[in-house]
Design a protein around this nucleic acid. Sequence first.
DNA 1: CCGTGGTAACTTACTCAAAAGTCATATGAG
DNA 2: CTCATATGACTTTTGAGTAAGTTACCACGG
Lengths: 204, 204
Amino acid sequence: MARAKAGTKGVPRLERESQMLEVASEIFGNEGYAATNIQVVAERAGISKPLIYNYFGSKEGLFLACLDRAGTIVADEIERIARGDAVGIERGLRTLEGMFTILEPQPYLWKLFYDPTAPSTGAVADAIDHYTQRIAKLADEGVAELMGLAGNTDPVDISAMTALWLGIVDSLMNWWMEHPDESADAMMQRCVRLLSALLGDSRQ
Amino acid sequence: MARAKAGTKGVPRLERESQMLEVASEIFGNEGYAATNIQVVAERAGISKPLIYNYFGSKEGLFLACLDRAGTIVADEIERIARGDAVGIERGLRTLEGMFTILEPQPYLWKLFYDPTAPSTGAVADAIDHYTQRIAKLADEGVAELMGLAGNTDPVDISAMTALWLGIVDSLMNWWMEHPDESADAMMQRCVRLLSALLGDSRQ
DNA sequence: CCGTGGTAACTTACTCAAAAGTCATATGAG
DNA sequence: CTCATATGACTTTTGAGTAAGTTACCACGG
């Protein structure tokens, strides 16, 4: 008798891991670290809580694994685009396009790096720092280039503009999450329209 | 003997309430709802935890009161500016100026409405909804005006642009929170510079 | 082709700490 | 003297983390 449904279900470790990571990333991204309940992650993944601890050690460990997965996906893509030859506004649009394409099935990944409730010390903080630095560095390059073309080389202005740019990406991701029917391509076209509306009106 | 320091301290109820609300708003805004500990709020306000419960009933009740206070401050200001006669980009800049001025001593108030860890049901959710709707409605008017000038009247584009605009405000607030030496006026001038850099480069 | 042991995958049923929330009581202002 | 203001010391709840054991797959000897 005893434990009704214990025992392996024949799912290999790696497969279970990515299955857990997908579910966990979605919940962490949508609810935030602090508001995420491991029990809920387990239920939605169709497994038990201890299995998560067995595989990832702790809530932080699970979050860290999510960060690494998402960070690689996102930062690699931005780096790939940065190596292209677009400059100024064009580079910004190319970057957006890449983000939309890569985050089409999972826009919440972006949120993992900008979660104010994530632990602010330890390995998690280090990982967040690592990936956001990597992203911010590339953004900063693009922004400095854009600002330079307009004759502004003030580093503080560039820092503010970079924050603004990352905030713009963030807002677009949020809006997108609320409009899931929108395809990556449609998002991209919309951005172009928004930009031209902004520029079209701008000189009174 | 017994309770060393119990008993009234002669502070009238209303004064204590706003004192608690100020402290609580700062912590809720900076740490987020989920990560906020009522005990800590009490300590920082120099009073005991039960007094908070006596006055506000629950953590949610306290948060709700913070929302009402901040919502009134922010929405009233935006409404005041909307009644002015600036249009297009100019209206946006005036709104930013108003936000910077009013949030100069307490930029974290803004964060209360965009806290992903706040309860997503009940009175708190209703209040958040109420104030963000109120803010979004005004933003939407301004954005529709701007887009109209550029010949774009698509409501979905307007919705996206509104989200973008609110995100821009949010980013600027966040950047400002990380650069507390900056005065409201300096922030304003910086925004004008950023805008002109963006527009200056824009037509290849 | 059939046991049989070893190991990886898995769960139930707990412990424990932190933080929300309550109660009984104290004390100073009017 | 009294009651709104205030607190120390609880109880309760929630959720992270763990101990101990169960079951299925699989290699290998017969």
